[in-house]
């Protein structure tokens, strides 16, 4: 705990330093997410949390306009040229062409880019000198207390409410949901987001089952209890991640970048 406090204190001072906007990408503000301990949603008392160091994170998801700049600079990531191993046929299908957002370009420009694969998101982040957040980082950032939510909902209710509704016909722009205590916008309620290690959840698609070898592997680990049975919101995110493959491009899945603090 003392360790945590130290970290917190340290990073409370940080915004005064040179951060917010990180180097190359003047347009995109990054904010400091304090470090902490990440507990997976299904942990037991005996399971150790994953320590997460403080890091920088884009304040919003990457937008279509921003991603357009990327594909302009990197033609091999244009829709007609991309290798299907790295992005399937749904890649950027909301666009009118390789470098054309279509007639709604004004509106679309400010909405999060979706229909992007993990490989594309990775390449974008690398281009920006950044990286994708890990699951632990993303979950810690996403747990940040909202400034204010509609109808004074709790964050969990807000998340479940969003998960419960089919996709909006038109994806809203960034910064239209809520801001959290770290200054991050739309961590929930707008899109799903890629994480660096989205494939870390060992699921065989069936949330109730696991394979024989995993049983052999883990049967000695003792009794277990679910940390918080009601944390279905996190469960839904894990299920979502578990259904993904790196080349998938999905209408409600985008990303934002992170960066380590050196």
């Amino acid at each position: 705990m003392k360790f945590l406090t130290t970290i917190l204190l340290f990073f409370l001072c940080l915004p005064a330093l040179a951060y917010p906007s990180s180097s190359e990408n003047a347009g995109k503000k990054m904010v400091v997410v304090p470090g902490g301990n990440y507990y997976s949603f299904l942990v037991t008392n005996s399971n150790k949390p994953i320590p997460v160091a403080a890091f920088l994170m884009d304040e919003t998801a990457v937008t279509n306009a921003e991603f357009l700049e990327f594909v302009k600079a990197n033609p091999s990531w244009q829709r007609s040229k991309v290798n299907r191993l790295f992005a399937d046929a749904n890649y950027l299908k909301q666009w009118a062409g390789d470098l054309d957002l279509g007639k709604d370009r004004q509106k679309l420009g400010n909405t999060p880019v979706v229909n992007v694969s993990w490989f594309a998101a990775e390449a974008y982040a690398k281009w920006k000198g950044k990286r994708l957040p890990t699951v632990a980082e993303w979950e810690l950032a996403g747990a940040g207390t909202p400034d204010k939510l509609k109808k004074n909902m709790s964050l969990t209710d807000y998340i479940l409410d969003w998960y419960n509704r089919p996709n909006a016909q038109q994806l809203p722009a960034t910064k239209t949901t809520y801001r959290n205590e770290y200054g991050l916008y739309d961590m929930h309620g707008l899109i799903w987001e890629w994480t660096f290690n989205f494939n870390s959840f060992i699921s065989k698609g069936d949330s109730r089952a696991t394979t024989e070898d995993e049983k052999k592997l883990f049967c000695a680990a003792g009794a277990m209890s679910v940390k918080d049975r009601k944390n279905y919101a996190a469960f839904l995110r894990f299920s979502y991640r578990g259904s993904l493959k790196g080349s998938y491009c999905i209408a409600n899945l985008g990303f934002r970048c992170a960066k380590s603090i050196k």
Binding site: V43, S46, I202, D206, E214, F218
Partner: peptide, 11 residues
């Protein structure tokens, strides 16, 4: 590990 275990029980 515990995730796996939990899932395992159900499995």
């Amino acid at each position: 590990k515990k995730t796996i275990l939990t899932l395992l029980l159900a499995g």
